[in-house]
Amino acid sequence: MSAERGAGAYLGTKVLLDREEGGPAGYYALLSDALRDELIGLGLITAAQVRREVERLEAPGIHLGARIVARAWMDPEYKALLLENGSEAAERLGIKVGEAQLVVVENTPRVHNLITCTLCSCYPRSILGQPPAWYRNKVYRARSVSEPRKVLEEFGTHLPADIVIHVRDSNADMRWMVLPRRPDGTSDWSEERLQGLVTRDSLIGIAEALQP
């Protein structure tokens, strides 16, 4: 796609905003390198700092959320702390929360929670990493608040009719994570094995935890 009206218009030359694999590097991919080099040249950042920060961004992931959830499934005292103060509970497992506050909400036989961000794409990145593309796209941001049940069904999650839905729009300083319901038939499972039932989608509330 060319960008006659877009950011490419800043350049005197024709700019390709080509996002195809193997195509010419897109304008923003080059702009990112240009900005890095410029800021290094100004002495504001170093290449090593950028590399370390990229590694730091890559480190979190669903495995951290899964550890928190499995511990809460095993240990009622930990679960109580988790629902009271998510950041403190995460840090008890050695998981550092970078955002202002982590708030964990519990799915129950009566209540199903769904996390969204209508204004941008706020997400507990310091624990779960990068949100999926659909979380950042317009359809989910627009409709998750006003038609949550329909969005869940389009995703393939069919909730029983007697369950109520709580939507959490992450519009300010809290970052939300769902504590999914522990699947039936797992009462004799180890904490490690339980972690395998926790998916990214279940931590956002767009799905339930995997059934064994």
Binding site: Y28, A29, S32, D33, L35, R36, L39, I45, V50, E53, V54, R56, L57, E58, T118, L119, Q130, P132, A133, W134, N137, K138, V139, Y140, R141, A142, R143, V145, S146, K150, V151, E154, F155, D169, I206
Partner: peptide
């Protein structure tokens, strides 16, 4: 500010996280 705005069918897609995107966030 699009909460509640009309939008199409929800398709759960994902995309790879490119290096330049991570680099921009890192900066």
């Amino acid at each position: 500010d699009i909460g509640g705005a009309p939008a199409g069918r929800f398709l759960p897609t994902d995309e790879p996280w490119h290096f330049w995107e991570k680099q921009s966030e890192a900066i």
